[in-house]
């Protein structure tokens, strides 16, 4: 870049004004919401998912997710009885418009909705060089888009492929677990739109949340447990072929 002194003198005050608005920030909304009282996660019941794509559409509407990018998506697995290491996985347009009709054969089918696992020890927050992504005190992995440089280290670090660089904003973008909704007492857009209850928002710090009874009485698994990310998207009925 070739900046003349004149241009520089014009640009500097503009940059200072822009930076001032970043510094000022805004106070926390939702006065009745206390971050220390919550620890958010999600329960996903594979046996209830019908692959309708309602969650994907709802997420795109609620969060203005650009076409071809996904904060949540649905995969369809097709697995033969003995070859679990080579499942056939499809996810046409993230499952947004549903899936082609499947004919019964000798293999099994199931749907796996995916989203950010909101890991307690997340690799994505650890690699950020500027402190633009973090896990909030209530357990949600967020991106400060005014601070993000768009270096995409976090996109590479996420073992679950849940991040992308926003094509217009050029900064990292991801599932916020509908933070603007859950802090107002609403559930996430995907849970609100799921017709079968295959997705349930869970507050692990709330002793009355049905998640505790569910985790006690079911065989629940997280994705890639060997990576010790502290994932908080709990899957019921998860097949061993899912990765």
């Amino acid at each position: 870049m070739n900046l003349s002194r004149r241009k520089m003198l014009i640009l500097l005050p503009a940059a200072a004004v822009a930076w001032e608005s970043v510094l000022a920030g805004t106070p926390e909304d939702a006065p009745n919401y206390k971050m220390s009282d919550h620890w958010w996660g999600m329960l996903i019941d594979i046996s209830k998912c019908i692959g309708c794509g309602n969650c994907v559409r709802a997420c795109q509407t609620e969060n203005d997710v650009p076409d071809g990018y996904f904060r949540t998506w649905v995969e369809r697995y097709h697995v033969s009885d003995e070859n679990m290491t080579e499942p056939e996985v499809i996810s046409p347009d993230g499952g947004k418009e549903g899936f082609p009709v499947a004919q019964q054969d000798d293999k099994k089918y199931f749907f796996v909705p995916k989203l950010c696992n909101h890991c307690a020890d997340s690799p994505c927050t650890q690699v950020c060089p500027v402190g633009a992504t973090f896990i909030s005190p209530d357990g949600v992995v967020l991106v400060d888009q005014t601070y993000c440089l768009g270096c995409a280290y976090c996109v590479q670090a996420c073992p679950y492929g849940c991040r992308y660089i926003h094509p217009q904003k050029k900064v990292a973008d991801k599932c916020t677990l509908c933070y603007h909704r859950i802090t107002k007492g609403l559930t996430t857009a995907c849970c609100e739109a799921c017709p079968t209850g295959a997705r349930q928002l869970a507050d692990l710090k709330n002793p009355k949340d049905p998640i505790h009874e569910f985790l006690k009485t079911h065989s629940v698994q997280v994705l890639k447990p060997q990576m010790a990310t502290g994932a908080k998207a709990f899957y019921n009925d998860l097949d061993g072929s899912v990765r």
């Binding site: 920030g25 805004t26 106070p27 926390e28 909304d29 939702a30 919401y33 971050m35 969060n63 402190g131 633009a132 992504t133 973090f134 909030s136 967020l142 400060d144 005014t146 601070y147 916020t176 933070y179 603007h180 802090t183 107002k184």
Partner: peptide, 12 residues
């Protein structure tokens, strides 16, 4: 990280 970012995201 910037603490105010949490409040900004909550206001969407």
């Amino acid at each position: 990280y910037r603490g105010n970012a949490i409040g900004e995201i909550a206001q969407r």
